[in-house]
Each structure stands twice: as C-alpha cells, then as structure tokens.
C-alpha cells in the first residue's frame, strides 16, 4: 500500500468519523470539535487532490470562520442548549432508513457509472491559474459572490439591530 493510500484512508476516516461523532455526541460543544476534525480531514483530502489553495481556504473559512461562528451561536443561545434534546425513536428509525437508502443509491451510482478514466493529475502552480480563471471565465459568478457577501453583511447587521431594538425596524 502506498503512502498516498494510507493518507487517503486516514483522512477519509477522520472525515467520516468526525461526522458520525457529531451524530452521536450529546454535548454540542464537543460536536463542534468533531466538526473541526471532519473539516480538517476534508482539507487533507483536498491536498491529496492537488488543490492546496482550496485546502488552505477550507481551513481559513471553515475552521477560522464557521466553527467559531457556531461556538458564538452556542454561547448566545443559552446554557440549556448545550445539550441535544432527546429524540423520538420513530424519528431515529425514519432518519436511519432514509439515509441508508440515500447512501445505497449514491454508492450504486458511483459504482455503476462509467467515469472518464483519463486521470491526468493536475500539476504545477494551480493557484495562479485559479486566480486567472476567477477574473476571466468566472468573473460574473465572482461578482455575484461578492454581492452575496455584502447582502449577508448588511442583513446580519440588520438582524442584530432588530434583536437589540426589540423587533422594531
């Protein structure tokens, strides 16, 4: 087994194990830590896939941004919310069955489809090329994304203001 394969199995184990740990953890703060582990595994998979820029982006945005946002969200929603509420058994069975079906269908699709075998792995400095693509071919999507971020910024500020002023805009 090559080193790449070992790394792949460790990283995908981290990713999936972290995800399952979120599912079974009772305390939410630990669930956030498991989410961190899972996202780290995904970043490692990106490095295996020759996408270093995306891996760094993943760490910066998800770990530096989103998980911290979730911790703040947890802290702002009171001590009673640090523990997951009890779920009904019926719901658990329904969720399990539907997810299992999804998993089987997805894995079957992955297995049965004939994927293009042309595995010409990426090489060289992909970062510069991504930058070029963002500002030429995908410039419209890029601008839309920046407008989206601006809208989010203003919208969240408005939300917070609403909460502070007691619901009056």
């Amino acid at each position: 087994m090559s080193a790449e394969k070992v790394a792949f199995f460790i990283l995908s184990g981290l990713t999936l194990g972290g995800g399952l740990a979120i599912l079974f953890s009772v305390r939410l703060m630990r669930a956030v830590v498991y989410l961190l582990v899972s996202l780290f595994g995904v970043a490692g998979l990106y490095i295996l896939l020759n996408a270093e820029f995306l891996a760094a982006l993943q760490v910066l945005i998800y770990i530096g941004g989103i998980t911290i946002l979730m911790v703040f969200g947890l802290m702002l929603t009171g001590p009673g919310q640090f523990v997951n509420p009890a779920e009904s058994r019926l719901k658990a069975v329904a969720a399990g069955v539907s997810s299992l079906t999804t998993a089987i269908v997805l894995l079957l699709i992955v297995k049965k489809t004939k994927w293009p075998a042309g595995t010409q792995a990426l090489a060289g400095d992909t970062t510069a090329e991504i930058g070029r693509l963002l500002l030429t071919d995908h410039v419209f999507a890029f601008e839309i994304a920046s407008v989206l971020l601006l809208v989010v910024l203003v919208g969240v500020a408005l939300f917070v203001r609403l909460a502070r002023d007691g619901g009056k805009p």
Partner: peptide, 14 residues
Amino acid sequence: ALLFTVGLLIVLFR
C-alpha cells in the same frame, strides 16, 4: 457520498 449521508442523517435526526 458517505459524507453526504452522514450530513443528511444529522439533519434528519437532530
């Protein structure tokens, strides 16, 4: 696919 399933399970279960 498996990661998607885990995410789905969390969304449905929690």
